[in-house]
Design a protein around this nucleic acid. Structure first.
Length: 113
DNA sequence: CATATGACGTGGG
DNA sequence: CCCCACGCCATAT
């Protein structure tokens, strides 16, 4: 058991995020059984080679895109999210309450507006 | 071994 | 909205 399985757990948690939903780095870490490892999640995504990995569904705890505003990665993530129905305003998305199951429904319709 | 760095998080002013 | 401090952790230098 080492860094290798930790990365596997993180990738699995990311792949588990439903299409049209989002999760914070810290939330992904918790779901992967690695609390306080938000930074490791970021590192893992940065070095991931899996083209199918839905990395764009991972944002900061406050809903902001983690990349520098207007950077290539920032634009790419905004586009990918919008492409699957997620509302992105000023590089920001509505985050599900802590512990709440980010469902497709919640992401698409969201509670009130 | 000491510092510096980040696709981070939380709290406070 | 801004800014800052501090905690946290794997890597890089």
């Amino acid at each position: 058991m080492g860094a290798l399985s930790a990365a596997a757990a993180i990738l699995a948690a990311v792949r588990a995020i439903p299409r049209g939903a989002v999760a914070s780095y810290g939330e992904v870490a918790r779901r992967a059984g690695l609390p306080r490892h938000a930074r490791m999640v970021a590192r893992t995504l940065a070095s991931a080679d899996d083209l199918e990995l839905p990395w764009h569904r991972v944002v900061r705890s406050d809903g902001r895109i983690a990349f520098a505003p207007d950077s290539d990665g920032w634009k790419e993530q905004c586009a990918r999210l919008r492409a699957e129905g997620v509302k992105v305003i000023a590089g920001r998305v509505r985050m599900p309450a802590r512990g709440e199951p980010a469902t497709l429904d919640a992401a698409l319709w969201g509670p009130v507006d």
